[in-house]
């Protein structure tokens, strides 16, 4: 009797186990999907960006800029163009990144007051993006193949069901020693990320503050990064977002770095 009961339980459990394996996704595949949904939405995009940087002492600064993005290959090379509006000391300054996932990115800055084009060494992807608590890598994305991922038990963030994925860098990395990502099961956007540093201490927390539907693309229109180790927090808000506007690769060259394309940057 006992045996048949056990068999029955096993028989009942088996389809469930099979079901989990069938629909349950591989952690790396989830991270890839998430990366594409978050960093490679549509083929190109334009957005007005407001960045509020709060220091550990509570002082707030605001930066406003326009950002243009062009995907050259899905999950691969990308080009970014940034035109600063505020504050006054950096207004009209432009900044360009050619993101090369399997190599070193290339970055240039143009300072209009001295008519100076300058390449910037892009060795350190962990350096701050324009003085904020986001790093360059946070803004342009870390390739999923650089970490080893494992799936932890599912969870929820607010009312959203999420995958929880633990990522450990394949090579020793100063950005983090371990990362937990909470990825929306429906749209694959990362709703929360926890970055752990030395002695497995939580050092930074990323939060998706607002997710909206724009031109049929589920878009994170506000996100924040809090630094728990050094203090301080940055909130980035996106507005006037447009997708698939047909940006040409020629816009991401020195010519347009010096002459902002007025068609897109008003």
């Amino acid at each position: 009797m006992l045996n048949s009961k056990l068999i029955l339980i096993l028989l009942l459990a088996l389809p469930m186990a099979i079901a989990t394996t069938a629909t349950g996704e591989d952690a790396a595949a989830i991270m890839e999907k998430s990366h594409l949904a978050y960093y490679y939405a549509a083929d190109d995009g334009i957005s007005e960006v407001t960045m509020r940087i709060t220091s550990k002492r509570g002082k707030e600064r605001t930066k406003e800029f326009v950002m243009l993005r062009l995907d050259e290959e899905e999950g691969g090379k990308q080009k970014y163009y940034t035109y600063f509006r505020k504050p006054s000391d950096i207004s009209r300054l432009t900044f360009m990144v050619h993101k090369i996932p399997d190599g070193n990115d290339q970055r240039w800055i143009y300072v209009p007051s001295v008519d100076l084009v300058k390449p910037i060494s892009a060795d350190d992807k962990n350096s701050s993006f324009v003085g904020s608590h986001f790093s360059y890598e946070d803004v342009s994305g870390r390739h999923w193949s650089e970490d080893k991922h494992s799936l932890l038990p599912d969870s929820t963030i607010g009312d959203r069901a999420v995958f929880v994925i633990e990522s450990i860098p394949v090579e020793k990395y100063k950005g983090f020693s371990r990362k937990l990502s909470y990825i929306d099961k429906e749209n694959y956007l990362p709703l929360r990320e926890e970055y752990y540093g030395k002695k497995d201490k939580l050092v930074r927390v990323f939060t998706a503050e607002k997710v909206e539907e724009i031109d049929g693309v589920t878009t994170m229109t506000a996100r924040s990064m809090e630094n728990l180790k050094k203090g301080g927090k940055t909130l980035i808000e996106f507005s006037s977002i447009e997708y698939n506007v047909g940006l040409d690769a020629s816009l991401f060259t020195e010519r347009f770095l010096k002459n902002p394309p007025r068609k897109y940057i008003k």
Partner: peptide
Amino acid sequence: VRGPMAGGI
């Protein structure tokens, strides 16, 4: 000539 080399420019 200018360009990237050894993690710098």
